[in-house]
Structures are given as structure tokens and as C-alpha cells.
Design a protein around this nucleic acid. Structure first.
Lengths: 154, 154
DNA sequence: CATGAAATTGACCTTTAACGTAAGCTTTTC
DNA sequence: GAAAAGCTTACGTTAAAGGTCAATTTCATG
């Protein structure tokens, strides 16, 4: 709160275990700004900038792409504006939410299948090649539409 | 069950809305085999092969990469073997399961955060740049270790 | 058997992500 | 006044899932 910290790009790189190139790249993408203090040629970074990098790392670890992070930052930036923007923001968030929930559902299906497969390891069944209908114990039967194959074939 | 269907590569391509190149590519990766019936130069496909492609599509829609699908097929192929193999298989499955559950947890976190953000749209707060400790209402406070910044800085 | 449609192999091309790496030059810092 | 660090520019990288020629061959059919 008292002294204004001022880092050089290499400092931040060391602090976060990334390269200077990465930091410049973030700037290039518009994820980060440098202070560019007193017209020097070298970038200068404040504590605030450092925090920003930490955010980027967190969100990255989190699975987001830099583009997604950019989106979030942009949204946050616009957060200070009026109500109309606010509602459009809400819409965007909700879209992303739906998307994520969709991906989650897919993952859940995958997990379920894998769990099932683990359980079934002793009752081995060749479900990968089973056409479904002909096979009583085939768990794929509801997903494998053999009629589709037959109908579309000549 | 009576007539043995025999498709040409173009038939399957049309049936599944993919290109012949894609089908050959699957073969190239070892995901698919053609019957190569009676030494003809042109590939021939049985109903079984067609089902296989359908499986590939399902698993793909599902979010798996072709490499992952390959793994699954290999595992399924090995399913017919003895007990020692069986247990090592179980281990592999469980590893993948853990992996998937980890990804799921990350996604859940993302969903949670997004939901929170939607809720908070009217109590706007600049949490992206907030260092955490100094800010009481900052939800990042527990994740943002400012001491880390201070400690590692010169 | 002639011919047009469909298949074959092989090789290179494409796109996106997130930087890596090198070159040549300038600025700080000791 | 060097060495160390930084600057810009620009091309390289890796992986995924095919796309796109190209030159040649095979299949099906009247």
C-alpha cells in the first residue's frame, strides 16, 4: 500500500515460471498491459499487472484458453457500464454456462460408460462391434440405430 | 441376418456424411478394417464395419479424440484375454476414469464460477485485478496468494 | 470393349493454440 | 564499457483430423 512496486518483464517471468515471450504474447493478445512508464523502451509492471498474470494462470490451469480468458476480461471490463450492457452480459454468460453444462453432460456420459466397462470386465462382451438390435445384453442397443444403416444403404 | 451386406467406401461415406478420405484415415489409424474381399483392389465393407464407423462417430460426438477411441477399441479387443491382462486393463480404465473425473471437477469449478458471476452482475466488482487481501468482498481472496508475489519478488 | 464413374496410393496442405527460437539491435546496469 | 536484459520482427513448432491435388487403376455397364 505504501511503495509502488515496479517489475521488469524478467522479474515477472521468474516469479511465475514463464518466459518473457509469454508475457509479451499476453500483451499482444490484449490480456495484459504494461505501464510503459516515463517513455522508457522497456516495459514496466505494477503489482496490479502481476496479479493479472496470476489470474491468467489460474484460469489457464482451470482449463480455459487464452481466448476465453480474454473474453472474460473483456466482460469484466464492461461490467462497470449501464444496465443494457449488463443484460447482454448476462446473456453471454448464460450461453457459456449452457455450453459448459453440455460439455459436462458429455463427460458424465463418458465417466458412466467407463465405470460400467470397469464393472463389466468379467462379463466380457464385444460391444464395440455389436450392431445392437440382435444382441440382448448390448448396452449400446438404445444408441445404435441399425435401422438407420439399413434404411440409408441401397 | 440373412444377406451379407457389402458396401463400397463411397456408400459408407454417403451413409455417414463423411468423406472417403476420412474412412481411409480411420483405417490408417487402425480404427477400422476393410474386408478386402476376394483380393479385389477396392475396399469392401460389411455391416460390422459400418457399425464400427457409427461407434467412431458416437464417441467422437461425445468429445473423444480418435486416439482415445483407438485406445478404447484396443482395450475392448484385449477384453477377451485372461485374468492377468484383465486386471491391468482395469487399472488402465481406472486411470482414464480418474482423469475424466479430474476434468469434470475443473468443469464444475468453471460452472460454479460462471453461475456466481451471473448472480453477481449487479454487485459489480473488479475482481480480475484485485490483489485479494486488501479487498474484503473479493471472492478470489482465498485463491490469490499475494504473499507469493511479495515473497518471490526481489 | 470402350468409357465414365469411383477407388487407389502418396504426398503435401490446412487450421488453431500457445508460445519457442533466432537475429540483429538498443538499453540498462554494474 | 561490457555484460545482461530487453526490444521488435518474423518464422518455426506440435498435434488433430482430415482436405486437396495428382496421376493411375479398377469397376460397372451399354
Amino acid at each position: 500500500m505504501s511503495e509502488e512496486a515496479s517489475y521488469k518483464i524478467g522479474d515477472l517471468a521468474r516469479m511465475f515460471g514463464i518466459t518473457a515471450r509469454a508475457i509479451r504474447y499476453y500483451e499482444e493478445l490484449g490480456l495484459l498491459e504494461s505501464d510503459d512508464r516515463d517513455g522508457s523502451e522497456h516495459r514496466r509492471y505494477s503489482e496490479r499487472n502481476a496479479v493479472r498474470i496470476k489470474r491468467i494462470q489460474q484460469l489457464k490451469d482451470y482449463g480455459l484458453t487464452l481466448a476465453e480468458i480474454h473474453e472474460l476480461f473483456d466482460l469484466a471490463k464492461n461490467d462497470r457500464t449501464g444496465d443494457s450492457v449488463r443484460t447482454s452480459l448476462a446473456a453471454k454468460y448464460r450461453a457459456r454456462l449452457e455450453d459448459a453444462e453440455h460439455r459436462r453432460a458429455a463427460l458424465d456420459g463418458y465417466i458412466e460408460d467407463l465405470s460400467w466397462h470397469i464393472e463389466q470386465l468379467d462379463k466380457v462382451h464385444d460391444f464395440f462391434d455389436c450392431p445392437g438390435a440382435a444382441c440382448a445384453s448390448c448396452r449400446w442397443s438404445d444408441r445404435c440405430d441399425v435401422r438407420l444403416l439399413v434404411a440409408k444403404g441401397s
